[in-house]
Design a binder for these strands. Structure first.
Length: 586
RNA sequence: GGGCCUCUAGCUCAAUGGGCAGAGCAUCGGACUUUUAAUCCGCUGGUUGUGGGUUCGAGUCCCACGGGGCCCA
């Protein structure tokens, strides 16, 4: 890891950088140009709107700047990561499928997110806090340090008063900039759902609120939207504003009307397209990515780039666009749990470094997929293979970087599983033992080649074991489960011929002579040998193999009702002697 | 209508500042006293969507066209 600080720049030596290092180079170079003395720390920023569950797409909004900031800090350069909680945004609609929420929340549409009651049963004070909380927890577990800024706090404390007054003074210039992107056709239907953070975007409904033309009751443009003092919503329109006194009068759809001094008034905010560049300037943001929805002409990113310099005297941050994050595999309960998988729900089945790796290994403009289905197994396999290669020193520079960024940050190392048993194996074992710790322990100690002095404990398998347990319970397809039959298949038992009956008797007789993986292994393979009159150490012939196979199929049918299943020693050990006897008794 | 992204082995995808096109899975062959979507070894597999251009050199950069996805209108 290079730790150089560009005295005169010109360090182009390496071609083995990943996208994170390349972006960090750019950010550092741009920052140096502007602030040669390095008096000001570099600022990377994210914006999150807690208008509903914060999903895995939003996580990219955070992890992209996080990785860049982390790289900058690893180089010993001061860098701060801001997360702006856009919790002063208007409540746009009632999200579907959120537990504890019904249509009655519609009456809060138009209020700030921090003024909307949380879902029923929530321990949090309001809507925004309720949805921020799991994200805050996930960021902690992912090792993301940041400074959170509540926009509600900023606006209501008057932090942005000067900027607000400036924007109002300059309203006609702002209007002009916005106008460059308005086509004659859509001048009346501007985008109201443009909150900049890829807010799930599904908003096919209702009359959009025209933000570009906010509050233009008089036909004049105002870049500011007050919340009504009576009903609390932003269904307001400014009817008069005086630059000298900052006296502002506005009316509301609820019928009320208010006259305030804007230099003292704090229940309102700049419209999004003006708000964003104002904050770039206010915080001195050097890096902030944005979702693909900003690739369109006239997007808030493009417009903001003009406004930040023309109005607010700032500079547009470096800001790559990141592509969408796809999801495969759904939680069984997803519809009742609010639909979209969130970072917290992902961390129930992904080890934290693995989830970081998904976001670190691809450039932001590449679409990525977070898998909750069986592809998760492959992902774990890939990750384990990478970890082994890194440990052996056989990886390329870029792979090594991706791994390093995932397992640790500049500040700390994230928890890893000491004994990374294959996720596939873990889920299968958890499934057949139905999570019983004693059986789990027996099976896993047989699977993990452990030092007899220091036997493997279940703790050595954490946190992965917990992920496997959660996956089996919530994501494993019903048909993939191995379920012991609840009662003997008497019809099948009665139809057995003498040879089959004898084989079952032999198995049951020997069952508890050596109740262990090894003992059961030699037993199940030995039964057909005994029947054929062969010694136990006989090498298998084709004929013997065939009879073994027949025997196994019989056992599978009697135990789980199908022709195949988990390895029989594993299955028998997991089932326990009582259940085995119950199913095989003649 | 405008914009962004994408197209690489049968499948899923790598190749991240132009420098010998690579993995996993699948197939096939071999090994294995252990059946499972087991493990190990090996083989096969390619006109990098199409056509041009820049370059000593292009999957990579530029232009056009075609397929797919997304955003905005």
């Amino acid at each position: 890891m290079s730790r150089r600080r560009g005295g005169g720049g010109a360090e182009q030596e390496s071609t083995s950088q990943d996208w994170v290092a390349t972006l960090a180079d750019e950010v550092i170079a741009a920052h140096e140009k502007e602030d040669p003395d390095g008096a000001r720390a570099i600022v990377c920023a994210s914006g999150l709107s807690p208008s509903g569950p914060i999903h895995l797409g939003n996580l990219r909004e955070v992890l992209t700047p996080h990785l860049v900031a982390d790289e900058i800090r690893r180089r010993g350069i001061a860098c701060e990561h801001l997360i702006s909680w856009d919790d002063f945004d208007r409540y746009r609609r009632v999200p579907k499928g959120v537990e504890g929420v019904d249509d009655s929340w519609a009456e809060h549409v138009g209020k700030p997110l921090t003024s909307v009651p949380p879902p029923r049963g929530s321990e949090y004070a309001n809507w925004a806090e309720h949805f921020k909380a799991p994200m805050i927890d996930a960021l902690e577990r992912l090792g993301v340090p940041y400074r959170g800024i509540s926009q509600t706090e900023m606006y209501t404390s008057g932090a942005y008063v000067e900027q607000t007054l400036l924007a109002m003074r300059e309203r006609s210039r702002i209007d002009g900039v916005l106008g460059r992107f308005r086509t004659r056709k859509n001048a009346e239907t501007a985008d109201s759902d443009d909150d900049g953070e890829g807010d799930d975007g599904v908003d096919p409904d209702e009359a959009p609120f025209d933000e570009d033309l906010a509050g233009s009751a008089s036909g004049e443009y105002f870049p500011y939207k007050p919340y009504c003092g009576a009903c609390g919503t932003d269904e307001t329109a400014i009817v008069a504003y005086d630059d000298a006194t900052t006296e502002m009068t506005f009316t509301c759809a609820c019928g009320s009307s208010q006259t305030v001094l804007l230099r003292e008034f704090t229940r309102g905010k700049l419209v999004w397209k003006v708000d964003w560049p104002m904050r770039w300037a206010y915080e001195g943001v050097d890096f902030e990515p944005s979702g693909v929805d900003h690739s369109s002409p006239g997007s808030s990113y493009e417009v903001g780039g003009l406004l930040v310099s023309e109005i607010f005297g700032g500079r547009q941050p470096i800001g790559p666009m990141y592509a969408f994050v796809g999801i495969s595999g759904q939680a069984k309960m997803s519809s009742s749990k609010g639909g979209v998988p969130t970072p917290s729900s992902a961390l129930e089945v992904f080890e934290a470094p693995l989830l970081r790796w998904l976001y670190a290994r691809r450039r932001p403009n590449q679409a990525i997929k977070v898998a909750f289905d069986a592809e998760l197994h492959r992902l774990y396999d890939e990750w384990d293979a990478l970890s082994r290669k890194v440990a052996a020193g056989t990886t390329g520079a870029i792979e090594t970087l991706g791994h390093a960024r995932s397992v640790a940050t500049a500040e700390r190392t994230l928890p890893t599983t000491p004994q990374p048993v294959s996720f596939r194996t873990l889920t299968s074992v958890v499934d057949v033992t139905t999570g019983d710790p004693e059986q789990l322990g027996r099976l896993l100690s047989g699977l993990v080649p452990g030092d007899p002095e220091e036997p493997v404990t279940l703790d050595d398998l954490q946190p992965r074991l917990g992920c496997a347990e959660h996956w089996v319970e919530h994501y494993m397809p019903e048909e993939s489960h191995t379920r012991l039959l609840a009662a003997p298949d008497t019809a099948l038992v009665e139809s057995l011929d003498d040879t089959d009956r004898e084989s079952l008797r032999l198995l049951l007789d020997g069952l508890e002579q050596d109740w262990s993986l090894d003992g059961l292994t030699s037993l199940v393979y030995g039964v057909p040998k005994i029947q054929a009159g062969l010694p136990m150490d006989t090498k298998p012939t084709d004929e013997l193999k065939a009879s073994q196979r027949r025997f196994f199929v019989l056992l599978y049918r009697l135990l789980v009702g199908s022709d195949t299943g988990p390895r029989l020693p594993t299955l028998l050990l997991a089932a326990g002697p009582d259940a085995v006897r119950r199913q095989l008794r003649m």
